[in-house]
Design a protein around this nucleic acid. Structure first.
Lengths: 326, 326
DNA sequence: GGGGGCAATAAAATCGTTTTCGTCTTCCAG
DNA sequence: CTGGAAGACGAAAACGATTTTATTGCCCCC
């Protein structure tokens, strides 16, 4: 592989001068710069960033560790992170954890081993050890979407409490009386917040909460709905924890011949099918995914640049979109 | 930052022994290994992969350079790449190009500079220079989704010709007589193949092709449809180049009071709203996105491991899903 | 002609690891 | 008891850059 020495020889200069050409070009005489440029071009030379990272101690890399990039909410968020990171010369190392803390652990270790310059993490249920590990190595860190109780670090997330409240109040206002909350990981802060908002709204309407938690996937939505139906719980509306859960629930309701919204209303969080479906159907709380990502990256840059700030917890506003399912 | 020397001192051994602990643990005496283990644990030591990459010349990284991760088709594909890469100890460096060859160029250079072990690239319209650059550095490369004519490298993609043929034939069989093909980048191989399939089917049915190309986004779908309508072209069916174009077209048709499928049929490629929408509507050709990604990564591993193979062009079967829009 | 400033150089140190090669110990067969 | 092989470990070179230090020309100007 062609290295700096080869280029220097070809240009008839020392390696130093080639190094300067990339790092402080303004310090080179135009004629020398031109000679170097030609040599660089001849070999298509690109400085070895591994060597660079070793010496400079920075890899120009941000590790983004998330649950599942297959979820459109996540994708949009990652895009927000990337656009900001890019603008400042950083690239993204991407890791999907499927919300398993062991996979999360691997990626955290990798971020440390690769000397990433910072980490954007959507923490799994059991993330505290991994977070501690990052912090103990002084790795700049911003959490997104979820905020573990004990965490002493920056956070960016949507206003889950408000979301839970608004969407539940919407149902109450419409006159629904038996409203269940279905799905989601119990230990995750965003879920707890949504649930609290839900409870608050129901309390104000003097209704009894019905809660069935589980996971964030389709299967969970399906199973929990099945259970509710087979237990003959009286129901006229369901709030599901996210878009996947909603799809599972929808299937279960259909299989029991229930139609939406006439027999039962179905509303959810994070259904961004506006972007992908011809005819969006579900009433939903929408989080500003792109904005969350972009803000998280900005916050991370602040922390990376060492400004010794207090830890921030940025809560971005959400939006309720009423559609035909309620 | 704690380095191998610190750990070696703490364990009372040389740096070599610590290095062996990670790389050839079987060669260490159990008692020494245990002493090293304790020292490693004490500092939460992780070997610096930058140094490693420098010496070994491999970064355990695969660069994935794609158009837009916001498209669910892409996401699923990336997931396929990641799962295979992970299993072999590689991680993903992700780059979105928005189909701009300049952005593509930056990421290609980055992959080279970081000494990535391989590249998975979904080439932009003007990718040939970038591809040449990668190949001139002997960077293992697999193209996905699109295959530039001149390309001398491995490729994995869906069977676009067959897709174009099947979906158009479907319309012909249903008795539609005025079928337009709308949207997509003219220079991209997958579009050309789809178009050829479309032409073939229409030829067999003795119908005249109506073709309007553009870009792959929503705006393009909207504009092209507007034009068709305002030019009063006689139409009873539209084939759109991908899911985004379909959404734009749908909006245009709605605005002109046309209903689907009674006034006009609308079918598309890559509508995977099965995963995101409550009630999938569009008849569509589906590509095996996950499989394309996984196979591409496998092919890349083969090439990375130096087996001197002929270049392969893997074309995976597609599926026609009939829904209510035709 | 001497001093100051600029451009560039060579050589050496550094970053953190792996690897090559060699040394030292141990153990066993003869 | 000894010679030699095998096993465990260490010293130093190497990887490819950047940076520092000291030095050399060179030009300009007083």
């Amino acid at each position: 592989m062609v290295n700096i020495k080869v280029v220097a020889d070809a240009a008839g200069v020392s390696t130093m001068t080639v190094s300067r050409y990339f790092n402080q070009p303004e310090k080179l005489a135009p004629s020398t710069a031109e000679r170097v440029r030609k040599a660089v071009e001849k070999y298509n030379y690109l400085p070895n960033m591994a060597a660079n990272a070793l010496f400079k101690g920075t890899s120009k890399t941000i590790a983004v560790i998330i649950g599942d990039i297959t979820n459109p909410f996540t994708t949009t968020l990652v895009r927000g992170v990337e656009d900001v990171a890019n603008k400042h010369g950083y690239v993204l190392l991407l890791g999907n954890t499927d919300d398993q803390s062991s996979r999360e652990r691997s990626y955290v270790e990798l971020a440390l081993a690769k000397r990433a310059d910072g980490v954007v993490l959507s923490p799994s249920e059991e993330a505290s050890e991994n977070i501690e590990l990052l912090l103990s190595h002084n790795m700049p860190l911003v959490l997104i979407d979820r905020k573990p109780d004990e965490s002493h670090c920056d956070t960016v997330r949507g206003d889950s409490y408000e979301g839970g409240y608004l969407i539940s109040k919407h149902l109450c206002d419409k006159g629904y009386k038996h409203i269940a909350f279905v799905g989601g990981l119990a230990k995750v802060s965003s879920l707890q917040d949504r649930l609290q908002g839900y409870c608050k709204a129901l309390e104000e309407a003097k209704l009894d909460p019905i809660v069935r938690l589980g996971r964030y996937d389709r299967a969970s939505g399906y199973e929990l709905s099945q259970q509710l139906i087979s237990e003959k719980v009286q129901l006229d509306a369901m709030v599901t924890a996210n878009n996947h859960v909603a799809l599972g629930a929808y299937r279960a309701l259909r299989e029991h011949g229930l139609s939406i919204p006439s027999d039962i209303a179905l509303v959810t969080f994070d259904d961004i099918s506006d972007d992908y479906a011809i005819d969006p159907f579900l009433t939903s709380v929408i989080q500003p995914a792109y904005e969350i990502g972009a803000q998280a990256m900005k916050m991370l840059l602040d922390r990376m640049h060492g400004r010794q700030l207090a830890y921030r917890d940025l809560v971005l506003p959400i939006k309720l979109i009423e559609r035909r399912s309620s």
